[in-house]
Amino acid sequence: MNLPVPLERLVASLSRLPGVGEKTATRLAFYILREKNNYAEELSAALLDAKSALRYCRRCHHLTDNDLCVVCVDTTRHSGPICIVESVPDLLAIERTGDFSGTYHVLHGVIAPLRGIGPDDLRLRSLIERLKTSAPPELIIATNVGVEGEATALYIKKVVQPLGIRVSRIATGIPMGGDLEYLDQITLSRALSGRRDF
């Protein structure tokens, strides 16, 4: 079945979104077209506005519509540790815990030679600059646990070492409310080998 060209173009653009297949894209497209009250105008304005108004924070590279993000604007957080994350969604996840009172540094990726991503493609140089000007009490590396996240963590540890800042890595192990019997073997054996005195 051939859709009219404008509709097909809309479906094609929507289906490029992660997690959205052809079917869902078609459903969304029909929804947008059918919806009254200028929904299409509202959506396109919101998209364009977000795209043009949003940029990365000068200090930590979190998303913001200002020079500094909401975290960096709060100077009471400046004396706390810096938490290094791979992406903005990871930052938001930690922020939601409400337990972290320092600032962040978003790398926007991990080191992955296989995909041609090296340290220079990450926001690492600005991290070093930041550390030189304002030494935090601690650097918490919160990259994901996997070959690439682990390699990135090791790399940061190596380049930061000469600055004499305390570096820590987030713990891995048993999730809260996790029943041991339902845990997968990898998590469980990691938790066992990473046990601590009690």
């Binding site: 080191i111 992955a112 030679p113 340290p119 070959v147 682990e150 390699a151 790399y155 190596k158 380049v159």
Partner: peptide
């Protein structure tokens, strides 16, 4: 296997010259 493939890419990347040490060390450790 994933770490191995990353390291092999690093070995080949600079056309026969020794790659940058810090990043190589990281994958050697892994």
């Amino acid at each position: 296997d994933q770490a191995l493939r990353h390291r092999n890419v690093l070995l080949k990347r600079d056309g026969g010259s020794i790659p940058e040490r810090t990043i190589l060390d990281v994958f050697d450790q892994q």
